[in-house]
């Protein structure tokens, strides 16, 4: 088991290097340069060139990438061009907000997804089946900035003009109220995947013999579903949550902007625009590590739960 984990982590390394290389190449060949963006608009040609020199932008592409990798090996992500702060510390101050938002949105998505998925499965091919799927699909069908703006208008503006106080703060970070709207916006966008997988895995489980046995034993339908069917149907649901994690992290960019949420998604967009290479690289690396580790965790969870799979890794 331990060897398996090590092997998997070792297999991550080329993926991470590949990811940073692709992003580095894209950034490098993006027109414009960080020096011009940092300097005031009336900067002269000579000043721009001096700045490029200081930032090391005159080096050939591969040399720049090489020095990034060399730094990385020593655990150094470099410093932000714009602020001079170490990239690692900037990311660490911003990461908790993004992780919190991701966790909260998964909770929202799971709640919606499980309920809709179970309803759809136990009432397969009825109006309820389609209705539950339809409801779950609404979230993914709306551009989430649109839903976000609508919610702000309703819960902050409309509420405060009509009831004299704001139900939920329009933006910001720090309290439980602050997280509700961003989590709902992001969570609803991912609920449909959980609904789908819950439904199909429930359908499959419900046809198994042991469910028939349980029913035959005279257990109530509710007990059958919760204690027998749902339990066994949950595994694929956990998998899909893991697999959606990367999409969720990437998707939080827009939500973070609308709600002025201090996560790394917003930081990343600003950094891409300012061509702050090191910050972009650092965040992409963070995303890739998180995504890969979550995928690994999901696989491991499988082995913990299912002894048949565990045996394979001995």
């Amino acid at each position: 088991m331990g060897r398996y984990i090590l092997k998997r982590i070792a297999a991550l390394i080329p993926v991470l290097i590949g990811a940073t290389f692709i992003v580095f190449a894209i950034m490098h060949f993006t027109p414009g340069d960080p020096a011009t963006l940092m300097l005031p608009q009336d900067a002269t040609r000579a000043e721009i060139e001096a700045m490029q020199e200081r930032l090391g932008l005159n080096e050939p592409f591969l040399v720049q990438y090489g020095s990034f990798l060399a730094g990385l090996l020593q655990g150094d992500l470099g410093i932000s061009f714009r602020t001079g702060q170490p990239v690692a510390s900037v990311i660490m101050t911003r990461l908790p907000a993004t992780m919190l938002l991701a966790a909260a949105s998964i909770i929202v998505a799971v709640i919606i997804g499980l309920i809709a998925g179970i309803i759809a499965a136990i009432r397969q091919y009825t109006f309820w089946d389609g209705g539950a799927m339809f409801t779950a699909l609404l979230g993914v069908s709306m551009p989430n900035f649109w839903l976000g703006l609508m919610m702000i208008l309703l819960f902050s503006v409309f509420w405060s003009t009509n009831f004299g106080y704001t139900l939920l703060p329009a933006s910001g970070y720090g309290t439980f109220q602050h997280i509700i709207m961003p989590a709902v916006v992001l969570g609803t966008a991912h609920a449909s995947f959980i609904t789908r997988i819950t439904r199909s895995s429930m359908l499959e489980v419900l046809r198994q013999d042991y469910i028939r046995t349980a029913r035959a034993k005279g257990l109530s339908e509710w007990a059958v579903i919760v204690s027998h069917a749902l339990r066994n149907a949950l595994m694929p649901v956990v998998t899909i949550i893991g697999l959606r994690f990367g999409v969720l992290l990437g998707g939080s960019v827009i939500t973070e902007r609308i709600f002025a949420w201090p996560g790394i998604g917003r930081l990343l967009i600003d950094a891409v625009r300012a061509q702050d290479y090191n910050v972009v690289q650092g965040i992409i690396l963070t995303y890739a590590v998180i995504f890969s580790l979550v995928t690994l965790a999901v696989d491991l969870l499988y082995t913990v739960i299912d002894p048949r799979i565990r045996r394979q890794y001995r």
Partner: peptide, 8 residues
């Protein structure tokens, strides 16, 4: 254009 590309 993106601002950086635009300036360039």
């Amino acid at each position: 254009y993106e601002w950086g590309a635009y300036l360039q």
